[in-house]
């Protein structure tokens, strides 16, 4: 089918502009494996696309820098690809093809953030905390966290916190549990603290006080016993905790299902 080949080749621009749908993307990436001219075209067009990106640049708020750099310190990096599987021109494409499934970005983020949270647990709970006793008391907590972060159905949700910072949840519906973490939360006076809530058909139940942040990271907190249709909310409360929220939520994550 000569027409098919021509059709694929014509797709190069749309491919570089991410204007193809998943099926076409995969087809084109297979085509790239055998088409050196196409790989050259892609490379040149990507440089042009880079200029389009640069022309749209917006300076991020300064505080995002610190939280991003900080988050990186607890993320384990991927090793280089093994030499045997080298297909230079396609490395990026293949890497992305893996993400291009049903929930493409979630899969990538899930993997990424699972690592963030796992390592954060170590850094915050063991290393920085250095409190053996507390750690022992947290065994159940840690076990649940391991289950959630390792769950095949783990999904990642993120939300901006109204008063500053970002909240991230990794959740496993099967384990009916989630792991909550936040970065860049505003520092509170000593008498106040962040508290998590589960809200749903059954009403509002406290889901735990967030320990004071370290190095811009708060949590991880494990919340178990989730039921359908619940939302996770974050409020600012007196440091002793409240039975019911006494202020408006500053972040809300719809847990779905």
């Amino acid at each position: 089918m000569g027409e098919r080949r021509t059709g694929l080749h014509a797709l190069v621009g749309a491919y570089v502009l991410d204007a193809v749908e998943d099926g076409d993307r995969a087809k084109f990436e297979r085509h790239l494996l055998t088409c050196e001219q196409c790989r050259d075209d892609v490379r040149g067009m990507r440089e042009a696309a880079l200029r389009l990106a640069a022309a749209a640049a917006i300076t991020p708020r300064p505080e995002l820098r610190q939280s991003t750099l900080q988050a990186a310190t607890v993320i384990r990096q991927l090793p280089p690809a093994v030499a045997g599987e080298r297909t230079p021109a396609l490395r990026g494409g293949r890497w992305l093809a893996v993400r291009g499934r049903v929930r493409p970005w979630l899969a990538g983020v899930a993997a990424c953030l699972a690592v963030v949270l796992a390592v954060a647990a170590v850094v915050l709970g063991v290393h920085a905390g250095a409190m053996q006793q507390r750690l022992t008391a947290q065994e159940q907590h840690d076990r649940t966290m391991t289950v959630v972060l390792g769950a095949h159905d783990a999904v990642v949700l993120t939300a901006a916190v109204k008063t500053g910072g970002n909240a991230t949840v990794v959740m496993s519906h099967r384990a009916r549990a989630l792991v909550f973490t936040a970065s860049g939360l505003a520092r509170l006076p000593d008498v106040m603290a962040y508290e998590l809530w589960l809200t749903g058909p059954a009403g509002v139940t406290p889901a735990g006080m967030l320990p004071p942040g370290r190095h811009g990271m708060s949590g991880p907190m494990v919340v178990g016993g989730l039921t359908r249709g619940e939302q996770l909310e974050l409020t600012v409360e007196p440091a002793t905790g409240s039975r019911q929220p006494t202020s408006a939520p500053i972040a809300r994550l719809v847990l779905g299902d």
């Binding site: 440089e47 991927l78 280089p80 230079p88 490395r91």
Partner: peptide, 11 residues
């Protein structure tokens, strides 16, 4: 996370 997978030959 994926910096090691970047391939300069591809762009």
């Amino acid at each position: 996370r994926t910096a090691a997978r970047f391939d300069p030959a591809a762009g």
